[in-house]
Design a protein around this nucleic acid. Structure first.
Lengths: 364, 364
DNA sequence: TTGTAAGCGTTATCAT
DNA sequence: ATGATAACGCTTACAA
């Protein structure tokens, strides 16, 4: 019950009969200390259960906490979780602590979290922006030299480093894969809002693939669903069109799941499907799901490298780093277009159509 | 490029022509301040872009950071991520910041993370222990009055609050569900190590269900796999026994996925399966997967409540809180035992056999 | 309504 | 090899 005061460096010093500075020297391996003194200090530290106060230390040392603040939209989302994991392992190697907060996809919460981190005087800031956020308010921090890196989506209203997936090229290769299997009408299931960076980029990739193949874009083949159930409905709308698609491209993992569920419910196992972003159990589906897999851990690691370089004094201009996405062929994307469809003239293979037979992502 | 010094409270005060204390009063809405002074202070704060230094504040106020430290085994695992999310929302309502670190299931890293948090003087500590960890080293902190709560798995070597799933009862109800559908030989696919708390509890639940139904335990029906692929192998070993099980109970989500994959590969769609812990896409599997779902967000919230109560001075003795798990019926668990099997005498229904038709968990 | 002095736990600087 | 003193940025207690 006794709310004992925690021992301080001075307590340790008194116990030994020296000054706080001496204890400090021992603990930081700094300057000359008599071996015998060091012994006694260490003994006292153990005896009292002393643990240095990082807050006090950081305050004195330079008003900079040895921590990096990371804001992600959602903790429970394995994509962001894996990103955070990638950041953490890279950062831990340098003895830095990662502080993670989640914004629940709210621009307001995101800003308040950032403020908290700044108030804690983090050494660096990493942000996965939520949909509607704006980062003008960070301009001062950038000027002041605080390393800031954005992940998954670039900053809005601010010139800063960012690390993002190769969304456009990834989507292009996924759709090209479907085209290569004879499909000419390919539905696109997207998420909201349509202004979201990733959604825009992936949609561009979809258009790129169509253009390359000389296929005409058909607006009616694009449907939107903001969650799994909505994506399932979107899928059903596409399947019941007068001239329905023979293949589907899902713009993110929720869209993929919605499509999978909808196809399963409708018993439409012949419809080809490629999803953006890998899923656990993708391999166990019937047919197994072909995806364009992102590399969240790699993204986190790349962002961490960038931040560390900035901390080490790299003052070069802001850059955008692209993390490659790769096609994982499992079955659903190789279902051929029905015979009665107009014949397809195969195009020449091109770089980026890598066809790997990879495993499913790490499970939940 | 100019590494400008960050403005302090004194800078603001000088700008206005008052004392730091006055600025402090304004910022904390404390004591009487002339409306006009307040105005000018706020103006200066904006002009200088002043942001209070939380480290300095916390140090003065009581050597306690307004942050709660949470250690989880893995960030990318949606189960732990969702737990963290549950904690965070509950804690944020109180103006507290959550600091999350991941131990990579290493007892050593766990301890070093805890040390970092203690050095930061967190207000409270929450830990999801990794497999091999021991918490004797935290006894001093407990005595000193630091609120500590363990999640998912109880502390080892330490009497402390914990919040865990109803593992035993959940497993019992899942296995009972299979028995109720006529199965008499039920395989158990478990993870490693067998000393792990959750594994032990769930295994006990399996035994409980067998006992209740008067079925004899058969050691050969228990197989182990520490990851998805190993669980798939374990499943295959069970299926190829001389007297194979007609139903399987998977002890965790990895085991479930392994079992699903193995059954799919073997084309054994008639084998009943119930998994512990829900999976995204469970609904899209063929057959859809029946599970005993945990409530990770609820667990996080419950743990947060407990911690907050402790922070508010609750000094009652350490307690273990059980978060209910519930059966979600989707299809795989209701596949009947083959006719040629010995007839089964149905038991009376009992509490805890709740049969809900729920949705799949939130997707990744 | 505002200011002064002291102190939180640590380290930098300069002495001894 | 060790100590004394000041300082980091803020708040508490007391004074004016």
């Amino acid at each position: 019950m006794s709310e004992m005061r925690r021992p301080t460096m001075t307590d340790v010093a008194r116990e030994v009969g020296v000054t706080a500075k001496t204890v400090s020297r021992v603990l930081n391996d700094e300057g000359p200390v008599a071996p015998q003194t060091r012994e006694r200090v260490m003994a006292a530290v153990r005896k009292l259960g002393y643990q240095p106060n990082l807050m006090a230390r950081n305050m004195r040392v330079g008003a900079r906490d040895a921590a990096i603040g990371l804001v992600i939209p959602e903790m429970g989302n394995p994509f962001f979780g894996t990103v955070a994991g990638g950041v953490e392992s890279a950062v831990r190697a340098r003895g830095l602590t990662l502080i993670v907060g989640s914004s629940s996809e709210s621009a307001e919460l995101e800003q308040s979290l950032i403020a908290t981190f700044l108030a804690r005087r983090v050494t660096a800031l990493m942000v996965v922006p939520s949909a509607a956020s704006d980062h003008r308010h960070l301009r001062g921090e950038r000027v002041a030299g605080l390393p800031i890196v954005f992940l998954d989506r670039p900053a809005v209203g601010l010139t800063a480093d960012s690390v993002v997936s190769a969304n456009r090229e990834g989507a292009r290769s996924g759709v090209a894969h479907l085209i290569a299997h004879g499909h000419r009408r390919i539905g696109f299931i997207a998420d909201l809002p349509s202004t979201l960076y990733t959604r825009r980029e992936r949609f561009q990739g979809y258009r790129d693939a169509l253009d390359e193949a000389g296929l005409q874009f058909d607006r009616s083949l694009v449907e939107t669903g903001h969650d799994q159930e909505a994506a399932a409905s979107a899928t059903m709308r596409l399947l019941t069109l007068a001239d329905p698609p023979t293949a589907l491209f899902a713009g993110n993992n929720l869209a993929s799941m919605g499509a999978v569920v909808a196809l399963a419910r409708a018993g439409r196992k012949e419809v080809a499907l490629v999803g953006f972003d890998d899923l656990p159990l993708a391999e166990a589906l019937d047919p197994p799901l072909t995806v364009v897999a992102q590399d969240p851990a790699g993204m986190g690691a790349a962002a961490a490298e960038l931040v560390l370089a900035r901390m080490d004094g790299d003052r070069s201009k802001a850059r955008r780093s692209l993390v490659p996405a790769r096609l994982i062929v499992r079955g659903s994307g190789e279902l051929p277009a029905p015979q009665h469809a107009p014949a397809h003239r195969p195009r020449r293979p091109r770089r980026g159509d890598s066809v790997t037979n990879g495993p499913s992502v790490r499970p939940g």
